[in-house]
Simulated assay, not measured.
Amino acid sequence: MNVLIWGSVLLITIIIQSTLIPLISIRGIYPDVLLIIVVSYALLSGKENGVGMGFFAGLLQDLASGGIFGIGTLSKLTTGYLFGLAERKVFKEHVLLPILATIVATIFNGLVGMLLLLIFGYKVDLIAALTQNIMPLMGYNLIVAVPIHHAVYRLIKFTAE
């Protein structure tokens, strides 16, 4: 039952992120809702669950984006694992948790994606990617991080009952 609920959440999110959210983009940048869900879920559920959520969220994103297959999967998987490691060390209901986690996760996820591109032989301008993509994405992610984190927190409580 739990897998069906979270699978549905990811599926609905990727549909919304692929169709509606680009309509509110600024210079082609729009929030990565899947990343915020992965980070929140990993912080609240641990590294094993974070890896699974990151894998499936990244896989759905790779399938929907049409970009280089595997970049989203590997970057979200590693992000889910990293934030899952902090599960026992954070106060889960603190309002600063999603804000700080989103800042770190957006930068980390972007850097992992760029590193993977470099490994695959693509040329990446690190400074341009940071200033023109990752930093604006971080600002946009911060706007939606707190409500999404609280929704994930409530859904985890609901599915645990």
Rank of each mutant, 00 (worst) to 15 (best):
G67W: 01
F108V: 10
A105Q: 02
L96Q: 02
A57S: 13
V104S: 04
K76V: 11
Q61C: 11
F56R: 05
A57C: 09
F91T: 15
L74T: 05
A105P: 09
D62W: 04
G52F: 00
K47W: 14
G54H: 03
H94N: 15
M53E: 13
G54E: 08
L59F: 09
T78S: 10
V95M: 07
T131F: 13
L85Y: 06
L126V: 12
F108T: 04
I127H: 06
F120P: 00
G50S: 07
A101N: 04
V90Y: 00
Q132W: 10
G72Q: 08
T73Y: 01
L96Y: 08
P98K: 10
K92Q: 14
F120N: 08
F120S: 10
Q61E: 15
V112Q: 02
F108P: 06
L59K: 10
G54S: 12
G66P: 00
R88C: 12
G121P: 00
L100N: 03
L100F: 10
F91M: 13
F120I: 12
N109G: 04
V104G: 09
V124K: 01
Y122T: 12
A57R: 08
K47V: 15
L82N: 11
D125H: 05
L115G: 11
T106N: 01
I99C: 03
A57K: 06
A129Q: 08
I68N: 05
I103L: 11
F83Y: 08
I68Y: 04
G58W: 09
K47N: 12
I71D: 01
L74F: 08
Y122H: 12
V90D: 05
M53K: 09
Q132V: 14
D125E: 11
L77I: 11
L130P: 10
P98T: 10
E48N: 12
T78Q: 09
V112W: 00
I103A: 03
G80K: 07
K47L: 15
N109S: 11
G121I: 02
Y122L: 15
L59A: 10
L85D: 09
V95C: 01
L116Q: 01
I127R: 03
L82D: 10
L74Y: 01
A129S: 04
P98A: 11
F55E: 01
L117Y: 10
G84W: 06
D62T: 02
G72W: 03
L74P: 01
F55A: 08
T102M: 05
F91E: 15
G113Y: 00
F108R: 03
H94M: 14
E87C: 11
L97I: 08
H94L: 14
L116C: 06
G84Y: 01
F91D: 15
K123A: 07
